[in-house]
């Protein structure tokens, strides 16, 4: 047992850890050339002698050559404020400060005010999560309904299906700002507008995947049900729907990721909170740590949502008697 788990560690976990450690090391090294110009300017202001003395020369010089001509001045590379590339531990600090510290000690934090602070990533993540999940639920339900319509109605199959496929090839996210602005002008704002975009983005993947799933029973299985003289409804509930479950979950995973992207992009035009608003705000004011922290929260959220769908999938397939 222990030998097997040790083997599993060596085969599966160790390589991933090695790759992640390499990426972090590359990140730490990359911080030096990325920030070298700002670091040198700051050092010069504090009285140090920088090798190309004029700022104009430094602007035109290569980053790596500046690193090699001033190696003794680079100590502050990893602690710069508003760095072009903040170091991983700076991002981690920002993440900690804008979640736990802000909520427990901040004036507007949950401990003192009773509601999540609008300066914390917990609040902004929650805003995005709400829109993502609401849009995802609406979009996938509509997608499933459309798929049922396509499978059971010949005219719908012929006319709607090509458009559903084409819609996958066009960047519909480009519609997002317009949907937000138009819904805002008719009085719908915030959650509903963002959920509309998320629903729109998760709608087509689910419809296409579900059509594939509902059509996956082969002719022999359908014939068998016909020999039982099963009706349309019975063959739907007892054969087509169960057969479509693996396809449904595969497309739900794609849909929830798309839904999150939709919610984030939907937060760009109207700055009313959310991870997208944090990112755009960070890029306006050069607060790079803030962008990175929001990005990491978005990544954790995406991974968590996809994992959650996968968990439901495993539970469902197990309950349906699938072999692991």
């Amino acid at each position: 047992m222990s030998a097997r788990s040790g083997n599993r560690f060596g085969r599966a976990v160790l390589p991933v850890l090695a790759v992640v450690a390499t990426l972090l090391a590359v990140w730490y090294v990359a911080v030096v050339p990325m920030n070298v110009k700002e670091v040198l300017t700051q050092a010069e202001r504090e009285g140090a002698v920088v090798v190309p003395p004029s700022a104009a020369e430094r602007r035109d010089a290569g980053r790596w050559s500046l690193v090699f001509t001033n190696p003794h001045l680079l100590g502050s590379s990893w602690s710069m404020d508003r760095a072009r590339l903040p170091a991983p531990h700076q991002v981690a600090q920002e993440l900690w400060a804008s979640t736990w510290v802000e909520e427990t000690t901040g004036r507007r934090g949950i401990v003192r005010s009773g509601s999540f602070s609008n300066r914390s990533l917990v609040y902004h993540g929650g805003v995005t999560l709400g829109a993502t999940v609401l849009g995802f639920v609406i979009g996938s339900m509509l997608g499933v309904l459309l798929a049922v319509g396509i499978v059971y109605n010949r005219a719908m199959d012929l006319s709607v299906m090509p458009w559903a496929i084409i819609s996958q090839t066009i960047p519909i996210v480009a519609l997002a700002p317009m949907i937000i602005v138009v819904l805002y002008s008719v009085g719908l704002s915030g959650l509903v507008a963002k959920a509309a975009i998320s629903a729109y983005l998760s709608f087509f993947p689910v419809a296409v995947g579900m059509v594939k799933g509902l059509r996956s029973p082969d002719a022999m299985q359908l014939d068998l049900l016909r020999t039982y003289s099963a009706g349309k409804a019975q063959s739907f509930w007892k054969l087509r729907l169960p057969a479509s479950v693996p396809y449904l979950f595969a497309s739900l995973k794609i849909a929830i990721a798309a839904s999150l992207v939709g919610a984030i992009v939907g937060e760009l035009p109207v700055q009313r909170g959310g991870l997208g608003a944090r990112m755009l705000g960070g890029s306006y004011y050069g607060q790079t740590e803030q962008i990175w922290a929001a990005l990491i929260v978005a990544a954790v959220m995406a991974a968590g949502l996809v994992w959650f769908i996968g968990w439901i999938e495993r539970r469902t397939l197990k309950a349906m008697g699938a072999q692991p």
């Binding site: 995973k253 990721a257 999150l260 992207v261 984030i264 992009v265 991870l275 990112m279 755009l280 960070g282 890029s283 790079t288 962008i291 990175w292 929001a294 990005l295 978005a298 990544a299 995406a302 991974a303 996809v306």
Partner: peptide, 11 residues
């Protein structure tokens, strides 16, 4: 592949 990579755009 499942992450909202479009969020790296501002950076």
């Amino acid at each position: 592949a499942a992450l909202p990579i479009v969020g790296t755009a501002p950076i």
